[in-house]
């Protein structure tokens, strides 16, 4: 059983990661990540019956990606991430936690403000624990949604 304090700390890390990304505050997001952080977006295609990786970066790769975002011709409608932490499993021996969260991403159109459900999936996070802190060491976004309209540049 994970101690309540620990669980709160880990849940807050996941939620803060959503808040930072929603705000396009890349620095705050990266501050939540360990130096060894690795980010992946993966999904399964029932059409070709294969697992697919759609994005795969280490921390430096994410920094480059974030740096380049404003240089792209992008859809500017904001997205909002709604996460719910489902399970938290702490391995005291390695001081790591495996965290599974449900994630829904909504997109709100700038003109008129209509909000549409954009994507659903799961975060499979590995969290590195120290006495005082919890940091994201690995995030695998397992997308259920694969049809993303005309697309989006920003990772979920």
């Amino acid at each position: 059983m994970v101690k309540t304090e620990r669980r709160y700390q880990i849940e807050e890390l996941v939620y803060r990661s959503c808040l930072a990304l929603d705000a396009k505050d890349w620095k705050s997001f990266l501050d939540l990540c360990d130096e060894q952080f690795h980010y992946t977006i993966a999904t399964f295609s029932p059409e070709i019956r294969k697992d697919m990786v759609w994005l795969d970066h280490d921390k430096q790769g994410m920094v480059t990606l974030f740096t380049n975002l404003p240089r792209h011709n992008s859809d500017h409608s904001p997205i909002t991430r709604h996460a719910t932490v489902y399970t938290v499993e702490v391995d005291e021996a390695t001081s790591e936690a495996n965290v599974v969260s449900a994630i829904q991403v909504f997109r709100t159109l700038l003109d008129g403000g209509a909000t549409e459900l954009f994507a659903v999936g799961r975060f499979h996070d590995t969290v590195k624990l120290t006495d005082s802190a919890a940091k994201l060491a690995r995030r695998v976004v397992r997308l259920e949604t694969r049809l993303l309209g005309y697309g989006y540049h920003v990772p979920f």
């Binding site: 694969r146 697309g151 990772p155």
Partner: peptide, 11 residues
Amino acid sequence: PFGRNLHEDLL
């Protein structure tokens, strides 16, 4: 789908 060119083309 999260790459640097395709979304620009689609947009």
